[in-house]
């Protein structure tokens, strides 16, 4: 049952990305292009997505997930270099191609060669991140 609902959620996510136009890199780059021909669509997408999620989080209070287990606890507020530099690096790649991880998978069937290369490179980046992070964490920190 968990697998059915996971597949349903993934399918619904893909439907939303497709309907909203977020699988089109021009819309994403248009949103980020504040010095050019700015396209505000992404704000409507993010705003629309936050509304059901806001109510979903409220519904988690004092309850358990329908299929068992526990809801993910809120992680401690740790605004460290990994979060900030990682987000900046992600943003640079996001702007360069106009794709982020969700739309990269959702558009894989019709994204042609470029879509495939992006997804493979993303996987390589995710693999590289593991030893890179371990190495950076092992560096002595300035006192």
């Amino acid at each position: 049952m968990r697998l059915v609902f996971a597949a349903l959620s993934g399918g619904l996510f893909g439907t939303g990305l497709f309907v909203s136009g977020m699988t089109d890199s021009r819309k994403v780059q248009g949103w980020l292009d504040i010095f050019g021909d700015w396209d505000p669509t992404l704000a409507f997408v993010l705003g629309g997505a936050i509304i059901p999620m806001f109510f979903a989080w409220r519904l988690t209070e004092g309850r358990r997930p329908a299929l068992g287990g526990v809801f993910p606890p809120k992680p401690p507020v740790r605004l460290d270099g990994n979060l900030i530099v990682g987000s900046l690096v992600f943003g640079m790649g996001w702007g360069l191609a106009g794709l982020c991880p969700g739309p990269a998978i959702a558009s894989l069937s019709f994204g042609g060669q470029s879509g495939l290369v992006f997804a493979l490179a993303m996987v390589v980046g995710m693999l590289v991140a593991v030893p890179l992070r371990a190495r950076l964490d092992a560096l002595p920190r300035p006192a």
Partner: peptide, 24 residues
């Protein structure tokens, strides 16, 4: 496109809500 964007956004949020409330 803003309307389809918001509609798609609501579907994305519904997907996230389903994954959270069903699978946790």
């Amino acid at each position: 496109e803003w309307v389809t964007g918001a509609l798609g956004g609501l579907i994305i949020g519904a997907a996230g809500a389903l994954f959270l409330l069903a699978n946790g």
